[in-house]
Design a protein around this nucleic acid. Structure first.
Lengths: 115, 115
DNA sequence: CATCAGTATTCTTTTAAAAACATACTGAAA
DNA sequence: TTTCAGTATGTTTTTAAAAGAATACTGATG
């Protein structure tokens, strides 16, 4: 291993909480799509994922976060929808910030080790 | 998110190659167990994994690495066995080295961001 | 007070991954 | 030339996860 073939390092990170994995890139994408589309239904469509699963992820995030990341609006004109709370916005920002730093570092390290 | 609850960052990394994920912690453990036990069969038992799967992982590693990571010995006294090549040893060393650096960095970053 | 689109929830079906099972093959050594 | 433990490989079964289907609930608005 080491000379001809091209290898790179991939890094995956997530925020862990007492009960296990709490927030990774998948949920972050979901949050972003909820922000973009205004509803869980449309976010799920966007991501080609079942509404059911998207809803469950939101449910889990909201229950395990200190305060909900997504605010859900029930009934009314247009049936309702969902939007990010301040905590939800913060989660996205913080996650990407950490991810960027760690991935940047990882790239540098790999060059050093000429892998 | 952010004050009372305890969150930590978890990092998973692997070496990527043209055809996709090539070497992660799972295969590294397998290599270590092959070294320790002298055979794929016993390494698999150690890890409570099926021989078949362990064998397939070895096969894949050997084919995708520039040179094989595991040398397999067929037949003979004791039926044969398997042992690491120099490349296999190097793979373990390099992997853990990179992992250590990145995880150390990740921990520091998280403290900075007081997450 | 009927409509409507999205949320909420249960139940069933599909699918893919892992495990389990079965059976040859190998070759040094007794 | 039989034994033996490990490698090699195909087939079947289990299992868990994802997807899909079906149905009730919500409440602003006309």
């Amino acid at each position: 291993m080491g000379d001809n073939k091209k290898y790179s390092i991939e890094v995956r990170l997530w925020i862990e909480e007492a009960e296990g994995p709490f927030l990774g890139i998948g949920k972050i994408w979901l949050l972003e799509n909820i922000r973009k589309t205004g509803s869980i239904t449309n976010a799920a469509k966007e991501m080609k994922m079942a509404y059911r699963q998207a809803w469950q992820l939101v449910e889990e995030m909201n229950q395990r976060a200190e305060s909900p990341l997504v605010e859900k609006l029930l009934g009314g004109k247009g049936g309702g929808g969902a939007r990010l709370t301040e905590a939800g916005e913060t989660a996205i920002t913080v996650f990407y910030e950490i991810e960027r730093r760690i991935k940047d570092f990882a790239q540098k390290e790999v060059q050093n080790l000429k892998f």
